[in-house]
Design a protein around this nucleic acid. Structure first.
Lengths: 189, 189, 189, 189
DNA sequence: ACAATCGGGACTGCCCGTTAGT
DNA sequence: ACTAACGGGCAGTCCCGATTGT
């Protein structure tokens, strides 16, 4: 089954980024983790940059999926905030390293590739915000919610201590108070 | 004057991070940019990690300074938000790369050094938030403001399009409405 | 038609040698230029060395043909000299690279293959000289003519500036003066 | 003694080209033969192309020297021809490989470097011919002598069987007959 | 007859830090 | 306080050819 190898490689890259940071991502390491030879790896992805491009596309798709799940669970606005507070440590470490890789140029060999990588990252964030922005009528309130979500994410990226659970609950409630009625009615319709 | 060379090195490191990302930071490149030989560089900083530690300390100091300036200009709460919206592209690129370097482990050769580097980074953010947190009485509102500030910063880090000026003004006003009275009275006292 | 693919491959090899030198000759590049997959290529020529052997044989044949043409046009002695002065840049670059490939061992995987390749090259030169050597009676004059022809070729191989046309004409005339009578009479008979 | 290492490297490159052809020239092999580490090698020559450039300059100088010697020994015209007939097998193999390296692009990483390398090669030939061209008054005869010399060299490059000694003597004598008087008188003056 | 996939190996060049010298 | 020279290691990637499928 040929398609399988490509996925194994991408999963290996994901794991290495999560556990060892961008510096752990060497072609040898990826190949070994994926159980392929380096030649086999380079057949599927002719360069490291191509590998990152493949990963970014996969991430975008999975974020789209998980955002839809969160929306189904808690509605678009609360779903967005809940999803913004990273749950699993692995996922945080992974995304931290991915952002670092993209923004440090490790994921691109040419300026154009770098553009593409950054665009893919931006696109991922857009996919994440989309349901929420569509659901909150007041644009100012929507922007505040968006920024709070991103603020939560930044804290994880930088390694700041997390907001304690109770306080975070109050923050969510206050942000969503003017929204919930509309969102609920939208949900019920 | 020995201090001069040290500063030239740190400025060179800063410039390289801003223009070329973490991958452009090699001892040779830093030495060349600073106009020193590699031996000369390693005399001042015995290793790359030491160089980053020196830079982090310098950054922390300058953030402290600029935060104080912003507080003096617009009060602690509004000053925090204004300072959170990054102004110069160079500064954003620099901080992006610095975070990437610290969080990807490139700035540290030992686990302890990595701890220290992350701590220095966290400390920088703490210095930045401190005046605001001290000035806003309501802890929930303070947390929201804090997260919005960080959200603005994350956008810059990732490369998202900026919030348009007018909308951002409305966001600031709404966030600070319940605060301004207290802050103003504090200012007037 | 199987013969067609074989020719396309050899033509691709030829073109690559002419335009990119021996370093441009990789199995992938040849396959791509020929419009075949690497598997297809290796079906016709089981190895790179076999490919070069095929090419050398083809070159020998075409030199034989062209030498016969030149002899028919200008007689054996003058024809040899005229053919020695390379005409098309592409052909020069191609032969330069071919000689380099053979003499640097890139065209052979075993010592025997290398012997064969060198022998094929020598044979090509022999085919080129043969009509001339048979036609010029004086062995010393024949050797001089032979060496002058090769000298012209070396210049092209190395990249020396060409002998200006008028001077070259005088050189040819002087070399062929003691010969022409015999050659002319041979032609007329 | 720092200068010594550079020379040892160049000598190692020379030896490898003579014994193993261009394919034997790897940075590791050169470093090992020269008794330096690869880091040390790359300190003196930042790339393989730079190494070849250094070698070409050295070759040019040594050809200049040896040509002067040959001129002193046998006069400019006969000296040129004698020097054109390669004496030591090692030298032939070396020059064959060097020409192959330059003309196949292995000695250059950029088009400009390739230009420089070819120019250096041409320059070497010019240095070789210069005394002869200056001494032979008749330009047609000078060109014939020049081409015969190059023809001898090409034979060695390609691997053709050598002209037998006696025949070669006769060739030299006939070529130099119209020259010697002038050359002798020039020598005596 | 030809295509897709993969293994193993080699080579270039970079990079960090050490040492001898001044 | 600073430099030139060097050592050892390693990452990226290219390349040949074998295998497996049609």
């Amino acid at each position: 089954v040929p398609k399988d190898t490509r996925d194994r490689i991408l999963r290996a890259l994901r794991r290495l980024l999560a556990t060892g940071g961008t510096d752990a991502v060497t072609l040898d390491a990826v190949a070994a983790t994926a159980g392929v030879s380096k030649g086999g790896l380079l057949y599927h992805f002719p360069s490291k940059a191509a590998m990152y491009e493949g990963l970014l596309a996969a991430v975008r798709d999975s974020v789209e999926q998980e955002t839809a799940d969160a929306t189904a669970r808690s509605g678009p606005a609360r779903g967005f905030l809940e999803y913004s507070e990273p749950t699993e440590d692995d996922e945080v470490a992974f995304m931290t390293s991915l952002v670092a890789a993209v923004r440090s140029g490790q994921s691109a060999d040419t300026p154009e590739a770098r553009e593409r990588a950054t665009a893919a990252l931006v696109d991922t964030f857009r996919v994440w915000e989309e349901p929420m922005l569509g659901a909150v009528a007041d644009p100012v309130q929507a922007e505040i919610i968006r920024l709070v979500g991103h603020g939560l994410y930044l804290g994880a990226l930088v390694g700041l201590p997390r907001t304690p659970k109770p306080l975070l609950g109050e923050v969510f409630d206050r942000l969503l108070a003017p929204v919930d009625t509309a969102a609920d009615s939208a949900n019920r319709s």
